Computed example of a mutant assay.
Amino acid sequence: MLEQQLVNALALGCVYALFALGFTLVFGVLGVVNLSHGAVFMLGSYLALEAVTILNLPLWAAILVGCATAGIAGLIIDFLVLRPLRKRNSPHLIPMIATIGVAIAVNSAVQGIFGADNIRFPPGIIPEDAIEVGKVHVTAIELLIIATSIVLMIALMIVLKRTQVGRALRAIAESPKAASLLGINVEGLFLTTSFAAAALGGLAGVLIGLYSSAVFPLMGQPMLHKGIAVIILGGMGDIRGAMIGGLFLGFAEVLSVAYVGSTMRDAVAFGLLFLILLVRPQGLFGKVLERKA
């Protein structure tokens, strides 16, 4: 039924958008494509799961643990890897390669600690009852994903557009050196951005772990590929583009499974993305950069 598929697509697209928000925030402010974001996504899911199973915390507290630990991981990555490279004015390719190494190290460490098998959150942690609107069934986890994602997307847009911190971040995105001359604490906001972006990634990890009932060490890898696709589709560094691109990919995947076939899920979704980029190479909200001779 189309209405049911649209609800499923909205929930999945919201997770993609939430993941891509953190991804594009780092690129927009730090100018880095952080390829360890998928590992941070996975780390948040594992830590929330451990908080539930070992510490017996309620779900809301476990989600906070997952977000906080993912945010701290983002701070550590920035402090130990990205910050030294910024001070050396390293080319853009170097941080990308460095974060690939970080992702491999984190994935290997988690696999060594928890094993390679799929694990899941305990049954009953989220009510299994569904709200029925006509013939549409909306589960508690879908409501949680949609409500959380929409609230955080709106909040992030307000912070970036209406607050002093948002104006400072936009100034840094234009020119860190000029922002520093204006008295803006550039390094402090770099750290804040790294924490916030990683926390968003960790939250997306917890939500997708609950939604799919599968937590495993390499779960961040396909999400990373989709996150890259989303921010390219939406426009590199654009928050609106990350939100709309995530929703587009979610709808494309779910509807292709429903009406084309599960084996064609990624082919249809990425094929549509490719066609859109043929028409608009800079993405939906990206700017065209002129190359001067």
Rank of each mutant, 00 (worst) to 15 (best):
V102G: 03
V102S: 05
V102H: 01
A103G: 04
I104N: 08
I104E: 14
I104L: 15
I104F: 12
A105F: 10
A105H: 06
A105N: 07
V106L: 15
V106M: 15
V106Q: 07
V106E: 00
V106T: 11
N107K: 12
N107I: 08
S108W: 02
S108G: 08
A109Q: 05
A109P: 00
A109F: 10
V110F: 03
V110G: 00
Q111A: 14
Q111G: 13
Q111M: 14
G112V: 06
G112K: 03
I113K: 14
I113N: 06
I113T: 11
I113S: 08
F114N: 09
F114L: 09
F114D: 04
F114H: 14
G115Q: 13
G115A: 15
A116M: 11
A116I: 13
A116Y: 13
A116L: 13
D117Q: 12
D117Y: 05
D117T: 12
N118V: 14
I119A: 10
I119F: 07
I119R: 14
I119G: 08
R120W: 11
R120Y: 09
R120N: 12
R120K: 14
F121W: 05
F121L: 10
P122L: 01
P122T: 01
P123N: 10
P123F: 07
P123L: 06
P123I: 01
P123K: 07
G124S: 09
G124V: 04
G124T: 06
I125D: 03
I125Q: 03
I125V: 15
I125R: 01
I126G: 02
I126K: 03
I126V: 15
I126M: 10
P127R: 11
P127C: 02
P127F: 04
E128S: 10
E128H: 03
E128Y: 00
E128L: 06
D129Q: 11
D129Y: 03
D129R: 04
A130R: 11
A130F: 00
A130M: 06
A130Y: 02
I131Q: 08
I131V: 14
I131A: 14
I131D: 06
I131Y: 13
I131S: 12
E132D: 08
E132F: 12
E132A: 13
E132G: 10
E132K: 13
E132L: 10
V133L: 15
G134F: 01
G134C: 01
G134E: 04
G134T: 01
G134H: 02
K135A: 07
K135W: 02
V136L: 07
V136R: 00
V136W: 04
H137A: 12
H137F: 13
H137N: 11
V138L: 10
V138R: 00
V138Q: 00
V138K: 00
V138I: 15
V138A: 09
V138Y: 01
V138C: 02
T139K: 05
T139W: 02
T139F: 01
T139V: 07
T139Y: 03
A140Q: 09
A140R: 05
A140T: 09
A140S: 14
A140G: 04
